[in-house]
Amino acid sequence: MKNEVLKNYLIEGKIDIDKLIDDFYGYIYMIVKNGVSVYITDEDIEEIISDVFVAIWKNSSKLLNSTELKPYIAGTTKNIIKNKYRNLKIDFSISDYEESLVDNLNIEQSTEENEQNKIIADTLKTLKPDEYKVFILFYYEAKSIKEIVNKLNLSASNVKTILHRVRKKIKRNLEDGGYGYGK
């Protein structure tokens, strides 16, 4: 696989997550599967790979367009595996894949879900299909109400009502989980 740089995965300054996953999923899969010396389930592999891509998305603004992604991804994967299996011995032979590895232990934000995000994630599991679609279109694809209306063939008031309902559910669950606005 030729070395790919970040700029090849940017659309209007934002990371093309689908293309990134298509091109590097297999690479990360191999690293995880062969590098972790303990038994690892498909769910664990899926979680680690997801966390790697989320970490790249979160830190993409700090990278140069000319950053080579393979060593960066390999380094991120290594750190995420190390964090996940902190108490276990890991035979991590990353050198089979890369001559030089970018050590990105300086990544500010951990990909571990914090408590608040976990509550939101649990709320998503209770959403109806149309509520989930609106949530993803609004918060992941950053679509406007008008664009969501056109994409889902719903009325504007319908979309606004759905969004309002989802926000209320999330807020209620956050409050039940001990979070609140300051007074």
Binding site: I17, S50, D51, W57, I120, F135, I136
Partner: peptide
């Protein structure tokens, strides 16, 4: 999963 996690980060 990745899209959902990014959406959650934006929503939070």
């Amino acid at each position: 999963d990745v899209k959902e996690k990014i959406a959650i980060l934006n929503a939070s």
